[in-house]
Each structure stands twice: as C-alpha cells, then as structure tokens.
C-alpha cells in the first residue's frame, strides 16, 4: 500500500520539503508547495500547461511522480525571472502580446526556454516542433512565435545562451 514519504525538492534554487504519497505527481506537489505558476490543464501530457524544467529540460510535471523528482533541479516560470529582473522570454511575452488568457504561458515559456538552451537560433520549423506539445486556445501561437524569436535574439546578443 501507498505510504507517505518526506522528500526534499529543489525548486527555483531553494530546498523545500513535502510529505507525500507515491501517487502524488510533481504538478500536485509543486502546487501544494505554493508554486501555483505551474498550471494544471489536462493531467495527461496533452497540453503542456504544467511544464517545468527538470535538470534544465522541460517535462510535463503531471507525468512525473514527485518522489521520482527528489534531488533534481526544478525550475518553474517564476524561477526564470523576477518582476525586477525578468527573463528575456518573460519580457517579450508581455510586450508583444503573446499572453492572452495567460494560462498556457508558464508552460509555453518553459518549453521555449528548454528549446533555446539547446538551440539558441531555432528556425520557424524547429520552434513549431518544440512548442507542439503546448496547446494555446487564445493566440493562434502567432505572437508566441514572435516573442520567442525576439527573446532568442536578445539572448544571443547578451550571451545568455551559448
């Protein structure tokens, strides 16, 4: 039977502790710890709203068991930047109208960041493939593509990606 376990999660650079049963997903655990910038859209990996970086790569936190994530480096949207020092993706999403209802935005920016870490100058096709697991119902993705490319250009200039 499922027994609870106390685990340490490293979220946005800080150690946090949660006592959770085996079936608790990383999505649920993170939201339970107050990281509500991680959004729940489908709980089965179809929409990408819950994407977080685990050791630098975007994963669906709904398809990750929290206990399995112990010790990994977890980054949520809030971990990318602050209002005082926003990440270039956050800046461009806000300024270029890439967030409408905003519910897909956390996962969309995380997926974009994961792409840009591997590929700082993605082609349009590469960008579309990278974001195909993040559904958006408001924007038709058009301004999202613009915002990611704008941020990528800024990041290439400032050397935030190598």
């Amino acid at each position: 039977m499922s027994t609870e376990k106390t685990i340490n999660l490293r979220v946005n650079g800080r150690e946090e502790t949660a006592t959770i049963p085996p079936h608790r997903t990383l999505l649920e655990a993170l939201r339970g710890l107050g990281h509500v910038d991680v959004k729940c859209g489908c709980e089965k990996g179809d929409c990408g709203a819950c994407a977080v970086l685990v050791d630098g790569e975007a994963v669906d936190s709904c398809l990750t068991l929290a206990q399995s994530a112990e010790g990994r480096e977890i980054t949520t949207l809030q971990g990318l930047g602050t209002p005082e020092a926003p990440h270039p993706l956050q800046q461009s999403f806000a300024e270029l109208g890439a967030a409408q209802c905003g519910y897909c935005t956390p996962g969309m920016i995380i997926a974009s960041e994961s792409l840009l870490r591997k590929n700082p100058a993605p082609s349009d096709e590469e960008l579309r493939i990278a974001l195909s697991g993040n559904l958006c119902r408001c924007t038709g993705y058009v301004k999202i593509f613009e915002a990611v490319q704008a941020a990528a250009a800024v990041m290439r200039q400032t050397g935030e990606t190598k």
């Binding site: 910038d37 949520t76 949207l77 890439a98 935005t105």
Partner: peptide, 21 residues
C-alpha cells in the same frame, strides 16, 4: 497603439492568480 496590456506582465512572470490557485 500596441501598448503592453496591464495584465500582461503578471501573466508572463507567472504571478497572476487564477481561480484554481
């Protein structure tokens, strides 16, 4: 004009609370 919407920064920063939050 295409001004930055008042709700946009909070959404892009992941700081806008939704009903489920």
């Amino acid at each position: 004009k295409s001004l930055t919407r008042t709700d946009a920064p909070g959404k892009a920063m992941g700081r806008t609370p939704y009903a489920g939050d």
